[in-house]
Design a protein around this nucleic acid. Sequence first.
DNA 1: CGTTATTTTGATATGTGTCAAAGCGTGTGG
DNA 2: CCACACGCTTTGACACATATCAAAATAACG
Lengths: 262, 262
Amino acid sequence: MTPSNVMNIKNLKQACKACSLGDLCLPLGVPLEDLELLEGIISRKRPVHRGDLLYQAGDPLGCLYAVRCGSVKTFVLTDDGEEQITGFHLPGELLGLDAIGDGVHPCTALSLETSSVCEIPFDGLEALAGRTPGLQHQLLRIMSRELQSDEQLMTLLGKRASDARLAAFLLNLSDRFGRRGFSRHEFNLTMSRNDIGNYLGLAVETVSRMFSRFQSQDLITVRRKLITLHDIEGLRRVAGLHGQQAQCTAACEQRPEVSAGG
Amino acid sequence: MTPSNVMNIKNLKQACKACSLGDLCLPLGVPLEDLELLEGIISRKRPVHRGDLLYQAGDPLGCLYAVRCGSVKTFVLTDDGEEQITGFHLPGELLGLDAIGDGVHPCTALSLETSSVCEIPFDGLEALAGRTPGLQHQLLRIMSRELQSDEQLMTLLGKRASDARLAAFLLNLSDRFGRRGFSRHEFNLTMSRNDIGNYLGLAVETVSRMFSRFQSQDLITVRRKLITLHDIEGLRRVAGLHGQQAQCTAACEQRPEVSAGG
DNA sequence: CGTTATTTTGATATGTGTCAAAGCGTGTGG
DNA sequence: CCACACGCTTTGACACATATCAAAATAACG
């Protein structure tokens, strides 16, 4: 009705092919000619704002959502009414896959900041996947990876102490930000301390205390929402991820601290 | 080489169509004519015994495995070498889906008793799913449901006390046994107390104490591996699953104990 | 039938939740 | 632009649930 609508239609054309995070999202491995078919069913919504819901628990599954920019949290409501956060989602990640089983969203998705998401009608995606082996494969891969990361989270929640949980959480975010071209050493937490505690199965106070402790150990600097990682290897040690990446010789036992400008 | 091989070949023909748990497994929703194609790629192995491995962490993904009878546990090895159990799997359940992402099994699958499993080459399954919409849909559904159940487990591990965890675990098993035609009230635990504790993020001793407590509260009877549930509604209350099924009025506050023959 | 593994029970230690309150940033209205 | 109020975060004190340590009881296995 207004000129702005025309703009929106134009924006729609600016889909997967031009999207900077293509290879983190569904299009990875999908041949160019099929990509256009995928673009055909995806629509890009207006930006959503902090606190906006993408979908709510109980909603019928209409679309999956891909985060384009910003961040989103998903949570289920336990039977006594409190929320359990099931994930924080960064650009390139697909939301709503847990709704395919019953055709109903089991959790709610809420935007943590001003974000942009792509809407992908599931019916269309499924039909297209049947005709496009690369897309089917990528869809299965994405779901499989989510199963894998859930398994890691279970280990964290089931076996690890509070410091290991928070350290693993920070390292996980660092890694995911890094893959998206952001700094691995410095990033903003878009979720509250409360959310972090909820996700990690810890009280808010414990999260806060651990942040303070890590800071006093020169592992990180905390300045409100801004986190700076100074000693990633040290964090790995706290997280219980011994020498996963670099060769772990004597170096694991040394390294007292790395001073950095305060 | 021996006559017994001939028997095995005959057994192979006795595939999905004749399988008693067809509608719990992959074939659900797959039309009859496509079912034969599915049967074509599935092979049924000899029984596996207690302690046998179906696959190990690090193995390349060759096949998915469907439990036909018996039970299997899957676990990842944490970086400091201890195992974290990620699931117990009953007949009709599909194992190895978490390997699709990287083409490598992230966890190990070990049979808890004498079991029988079907081997499903993933390549073939994927190719067939591309030609069979019903099969593709069922595969996506199975993976989605697993995501959903992981979310529930996260809530359990993150928020619930030890009694709620164990109660929820028993109810979950009861429900799954029930769906498979076994008793919902009485079943054998094929896993050790250690395994249960590992899975639920509890010490063995705590699991044992909770079993004793539930028994003294007349919620269950424990006789070694054999568990009998006497008061499912009571267990639901302990698990924090308030009035999910029946209406929960004043009864929730009353009911001091229900005596039963000891 | 003896040996070993598993399970149960008890005593104690400790990490983390809970309660309480202060500090700090953010946003709002005068 | 400043003052106030509100929410979020941090810090402290304490209590409690559960892990840990230790040992007995019981089942499993050769």
